[in-house]
């Protein structure tokens, strides 16, 4: 098991290098960082431009440029943003913390309710409850997050205020403007709507995964063997059903981090929530290469990390995998 993890880790590093190189290429071609710099700083001297090129590894030779960028990135010699010459790390760190908070809240809520809904649907396939859950999930996955965000904002903020004089949930940011310090209840109120938007997608997806996975398991012979032992129905379900049903779901969950981050990006933008998504859309819009590259590295690394977690949890849950 330990060696298996080590081997997977050893694989992750070259993958990270290759993928960041591809991202570097794509950004070089797609956003033309030097032109963006000149656009934002039209009066920059030739020396300033050259300095910008050197620090960011924007050599005309892509491979050489990438290696320069890599060296500077690893040694912590990060270039400031092209607009306003801000330090990148503090901005990235804050964005990461905010997104992690929203993402964790939405994932926990989403997976919890999604799994429960899936289990309830699977226990009586074809029953009223199953049809209701299944149809709702279907509607849920058909609604893009920005649509649900707009409709929720309209209902709970704008019209709630019209009808009851005060909006139920705020629609933008983490705190009201000018607020300072930590205030948990306030923060939670600000997070309710964005969390719901992201969680809807997760609930819809996972209830479907869980339902089909549990249905497969419930029809399997070992469930009948378990029942023939005379143990309680609950124990049959939990001890024999759940663990087997969770194997495929856990794998998908860890691989799904990309789509969850995708949902977060959209949601953050609509709720002006200062996380990774807002950070990305802003810096992408401005072609801000020094801000974009570290962001990409974080995303690539987390995708790889969750892949690794998927493999490990799969091996942990399913003894048939461990030998390989």
């Amino acid at each position: 098991m330990f060696r298996y993890i080590l081997r997977r880790l050893a694989w992750a590093i070259p993958t990270l290098l290759i993928v960041t190189f591809l991202v570097y290429l794509a950004l070089r071609i797609g956003t033309d960082p030097v032109a963006s710099y000149k656009r934002v700083n039209p009066r920059a001297t030739r020396a300033k431009v050259q300095q910008y090129i050197d620090v960011n590894g924007l050599d005309p030779n892509f491979v050489k440029g990438y290696l320069t960028w890599l060296r500077n990135f690893v040694t912590g010699d990060w270039a400031p943003s092209i607009k306003g010459r801000r330090e990148v790390w503090p901005a990235l760190k804050d964005a990461m913390a905010n997104t992690l908070r929203l993402g964790t809240a939405a994932t926990v809520v989403g997976i919890f309710f999604g799994l429960i809904a899936g289990v309830f649907a699977a226990l009586r396939p074809g029953g009223k409850r199953d049809v209701f859950i299944n149809t709702s999930a279907f509607v849920g996955i058909s609604i893009p997050p920005f649509i649900s965000a707009i409709l929720l904002q309209l209902l709970f903020a704008v019209y709630w205020q019209r009808w009851f004089g005060e909006s139920l949930f705020p629609t933008s940011g983490v705190y009201p403007p000018g607020h300072s310090g930590f205030d948990l209840p306030l923060m939670i109120r600000y997070m309710v709507l964005p969390t719901i938007v992201v969680a809807i997608q997760i609930i819809a997806t996972y209830s479907r995964y869980m339902r089909s996975s549990l249905l497969d398991v419930l029809n399997s012979d070992y469930m009948r063997t378990a029942r023939s032992k005379g143990i309680s129905e609950r124990r049959v379900l939990v001890k024999h059903g759940m663990r087997n049903a969770l194997i495929p779901v856990v794998t998908i969950a860890a691989l799904d981090v990309g789509s969850i981050v995708g949902g977060l990006i959209i949601t953050e933008n609509i709720f002006s929530y200062p996380g990774m998504g807002l950070y990305f859309l802003k810096s992408f819009g401005e072609g801000d290469f020094p801000l974009l590259m570290p962001w990409m590295v974080v995303i690539v690394a987390s995708v790889l990390l969750f892949n690794l977690i998927a493999d490990i949890s799969y091996a942990w849950l399913d003894p048939r995998i461990r030998l390989e």
Binding site: D221, Y222, T225, E233, D318, P319
Partner: peptide, 27 residues
């Protein structure tokens, strides 16, 4: 159901056709 659970496995037990799928793979 309680009575049947008590009977199953104590007085009456069963072997099934397909041994490959009759055992839980994760235990």
């Amino acid at each position: 159901a309680k009575k049947m659970r008590d009977v199953r496995g104590r007085l009456l037990s069963m072997i099934f056709q397909d041994p490959l799928s009759a055992l839980n793979p994760v235990h």
